[in-house]
Amino acid sequence: MNIAWKEIKKNKAKFIILGSIIFLVSFLTFIISGLANGLSQDNAALIKDLPDGQFYMNVDANETYNLSRIDESVQTTVLNEQKDAAALSIQMGFVNDMEDKQHSIAFVTSTDSKSFESVGKGEVILDRSLEEEGIKVGDILTNNQFSGEFKVKGFVDQKKYSHAPVAFINMENYKEIYRVNEMQLIFVPGTEKAQVVTSLQSFSNKEFLNTIPSYSAEQMSLNMIIWFLVAISGMLFAIFFYMMNVQKIGLYGILKALGVKTSRLFGMMWYQMIFITVIALGLSVALSHGFALIAPKGMPFSLTLDTTVQLSIVFLIIGFIGATLSGLQIKKVEPLQAIQQGEV
């Protein structure tokens, strides 16, 4: 007989309340996680969506790509040796649209490469978020540092950097705007170990992301919030299961007196814990993904099924540990004590 299920059926309100708490806490965690991922994408989708590889910047740049200037001869040597490699630069800037409205963007330029958009002189390819701001293919954009004009050639999805949409421009135009001749970075795609290049320092994609000051600070804070939420949820689960078990001490004692095995009582507790947690988490996952569909377009929100499943597994493990720790009282329950305490 499944006594765990019988109890749930009879005490629906109690289990719904417990399930609601698990649902609310996990839903909050998923939403915060979605915002953290969204902000992360908003901050560095340009880098995050690149294939695995190595970034190189000048050793003297002190791990700050803005300060990096790669010598042209070094760049030529590396690009000749690695056929998929690209030299690139990223700089924050502005463009004015045809109505003279200013848009904050991140200018990106690179040598010919599959990893970055190639554009001709006087052309620009923009992140699609600018299309939503009213810019269309064929529009003319200007920049006060640039003598010519940019004609919008097209849009690309999910190309953001430092919370700004990316604008891919030709290298000659970039050099004119920023009055530089050297590129800041070299990107070499591939999973092989980084090659040692004299005067250059190598970074994996992840390491490179962490050299972006705003990115690491932002992600650290958000991740801290998520893991605090997970830890607090764990404690909440443990407290609630503890309260539930304390209320049932008398019942456990009577069942033990009748000859029910302690392992069966643990099984009963685990069944209830898993039942409530799985339903609450299932609802949470569904609603948080539903929220992703209705979230305002401008809101940086990105929640993958992988993230919610991973967090759900963490919640299940925490719930299991919390329930088991609080359930240790079951082992200590003396049937005689329960009998002497009267009706359960």
Binding site: I3, K9, A338
Partner: peptide, 22 residues
């Protein structure tokens, strides 16, 4: 002892000690 209690013994106490949700 638990096995004996479960299969060979029966108990009636001052209070009925019935399981409330059954």
């Amino acid at each position: 002892i638990r096995k004996i209690r479960a299969s060979e013994f029966g108990f009636v106490f001052q209070s009925s000690h019935l399981v409330p949700f059954l």
